[in-house]
């Protein structure tokens, strides 16, 4: 058992597959993120080439259906007031979706790195507080901590820290747990079973977690906008 635990902890080592470019050492999560960014930009350029009002090609219909469905889903939660926040949330959803599924293709998902998830969670919380400030002004934002009753103020302030933590750990935990279990399974039955498991873990679980992350963020935003 010691051998397996060392193997796994070796794999989990943070700076395991880092690349060194001159004085900068870039950890794996970051350069995988760069790869995903480039991939997404290229795909979106290819998909939106030659769009017309009355679509002729299938890929325009595909793109419009995809983006439209996600947009409507978020619009149903956020409503008219929150329309300006939807593009950012769509970006996060697409990025997370791709990032979680990329385990299927042999890369290691960038969300395995705690920094990535923490960064995402911190940005979400900053966005929620920004939305609240924009809607109510700074005074209103400070006052909103003592609603509905003044006693719950410490809880509200604590929630300011707990919400991002829970978002981050949920995502990180899911991806990490999936990764470790995949490693264990690969050690035990390296033939076909990993593929089947990967179907569930990577695709279903990954997409679900991406959706849940964005859904919770949008829920917080809607709560802040009221």
């Amino acid at each position: 058992m010691g051998g397996i635990s060392e193997e796994i902890s070796q794999n989990l080592q943070y700076m395991n597959h880092a690349i060194t470019i001159g004085p900068l050492t870039i950890p794996q999560g970051v350069y995988t993120t760069w790869g995903i960014m480039v991939f997404l930009v290229l795909v979106s350029i290819w998909l939106t080439r030659g769009m017309e009002v009355v679509p002729k090609k299938k890929r325009q219909v595909l793109v419009e259906t995809g983006v439209g469905t996600l947009y409507n889903m978020l619009y149903g939660i956020l409503g008219e007031h929150g329309k300006r926040y939807i593009p950012y949330l769509l970006t996060v959803m697409i990025y997370l979706g791709v990032a979680n599924v990329i385990g299927l293709f042999g890369f290691t998902p960038p969300t395995k790195d705690l920094n990535v998830t923490l960064g995402l969670a911190l940005m979400s919380i900053v966005l929620v507080q920004y939305a609240s400030i924009r809607q109510r002004g700074v005074g209103g934002w400070l006052k909103s901590f003592s609603q509905p009753v003044a006693i719950v103020t410490p809880l509200n302030v604590l929630e300011l820290a707990i919400k991002p933590l829970s978002l981050c750990m949920r995502l990180f935990g899911n991806v990490l747990g999936a990764f470790i279990i995949m490693e264990l399974v690969k050690i035990v039955v390296p033939v076909v079973f990993p593929l089947a498991c990967s179907m569930y873990f990577d695709i279903f679980d990954g997409l679900l977690q991406a959706y849940v992350f964005v859904f919770l963020t949008s829920l917080y935003i809607q709560e802040a906008i009221e």
Partner: peptide, 29 residues
């Protein structure tokens, strides 16, 4: 392990947001 690489991620994500907005969201929406 938490360290300054959070900044990398945040910057990456903002850049991705701007890029996707230009290339994907503006045309499709």
């Amino acid at each position: 392990h938490i360290d300054m690489h959070i900044i990398w991620t945040v910057v990456d994500l903002l850049i991705l947001f701007v890029l996707l907005r230009i290339f994907l969201f503006k045309p499709v929406l």
